[in-house]
């Protein structure tokens, strides 16, 4: 009878292409490292890790959304900015309260978006675009257009920005939360169900998976993590306004995609995103050291994203 099999040839071709790409990346990195002055120094490595951390925390949270098959969120930059502003503002009630409040707010913002997408089937990209707009409006309104600075009499927040054992605190947070989320995705029922949901939404429904809950969870986690990063960003800049949005949204998405997570969901991992974040930070650092401008950095990032998306999806399609 007819056998359901996969074409072995295209699979090998796509795998070969990916392997070639990884080889190219490794080669470029090594070459860059060897020829860029100032790259192979401890302080530079620290700088790379620090830069990777802020984006990385957001990116690993975002990965849960990607794995669940909901593409990505375009609201994370705004979420980070608002979180930084809320954090700095709430410091008047103490460090613990400020952190807690910010995280809870982040979780709630994300959960709301997740509900709309999960329960009602709204398009995730558009919902997050709208949410971003709402957040921008709210941020300016509540802050009366001014930046938020921490209260004068409080310095507890400085702990979050200061180096511990030589590495800035955000790096530690990045490592810890990444490992935590990786464990959650690999070892919990929630994580397993997210992968299944992303793999085949129709089958997930037929298998009675709790789709709404999972989607709320995915967006909630992404937003929670982003809020956490916002706290660290606020503490580090000691100043928060919408300018903080910067390019966090696109950088986080790029990290998740470049790491090799399939944008259609179901395949990939937290570790890949972390690797993607570090890789992007490395390349950006190299470009910076060699005198390349912002524009070049963005351009290179874009090219890498496009190439990896093509390769990843080639591989997925041939399965």
């Amino acid at each position: 009878m007819a056998r359901v099999g996969i074409e072995p040839r295209p699979l090998r071709l796509a795998d070969a292409a990916l392997a070639a790409w990884i080889a190219i990346l490794a080669g470029v990195t090594v070459y860059g490292a060897a020829t860029t002055t100032g790259f192979l120094t401890v302080s530079n490595m620290k700088a790379i890790l620090t830069a990777a951390s802020f984006v990385g925390i957001i990116a690993v949270g975002l990965t849960v959304i990607v794995l669940s098959g909901n593409l990505f969120s375009l609201a994370l930059g705004q979420t980070a900015a608002i979180s930084a502003m809320v954090f700095l503002y709430s410091l008047r009630w103490g460090l613990a309260a400020a952190i807690l409040l910010t995280l809870v707010l982040g979780l709630a913002i994300g959960a709301a978006q997740g509900f709309v997408v999960g329960a009602w089937g709204a398009n995730p990209i558009i919902v997050t675009i709208g949410a971003a707009g709402l957040m921008e409006g709210m941020a300016v309104w509540l802050s009366h257009g001014q930046s938020i600075v921490p209260p004068v009499d409080q310095t507890s927040w400085e702990h979050l920005a200061n180096p511990v054992l030589g590495l800035p605190a955000p790096v530690y947070v990045f490592i810890v939360v990444t490992v935590l989320l990786a464990v959650v995705m690999a070892r919990t029922r929630f994580g397993r169900q997210i992968y299944l949901l992303g793999e085949n939404r129709v089958a997930a429904r037929a298998a009675a998976l709790p789709i709404t809950l999972l989607t709320v969870g995915a967006f909630g986690i992404a937003s929670l993590y982003t809020a956490g990063s916002g706290v660290l960003i606020g503490a580090t800049s000691a100043n928060a306004s919408l300018l903080l949005v910067g390019s966090y949204t696109y950088d986080a998405i790029a990290a998740a995609l470049v790491g090799g997570n399939a944008v259609t969901g179901g395949r990939g991992s937290i570790a890949r995103t972390a690797a993607g974040a570090i890789f992007i930070a490395t390349i950006s650092d190299m470009l910076l050291l060699r005198g390349y401008s912002t524009g070049a950095q963005i351009l290179v990032r874009g090219i890498i994203v496009v190439v990896v998306v093509v390769l990843t999806n080639l591989r997925e399609r041939s399965r």
Binding site: A296, I298, V300, R301, I303, V306
Partner: peptide, 10 residues
Amino acid sequence: LGGYLVVLGI
């Protein structure tokens, strides 16, 4: 999305 970044970079 990649296109967005590439064009912006240019």
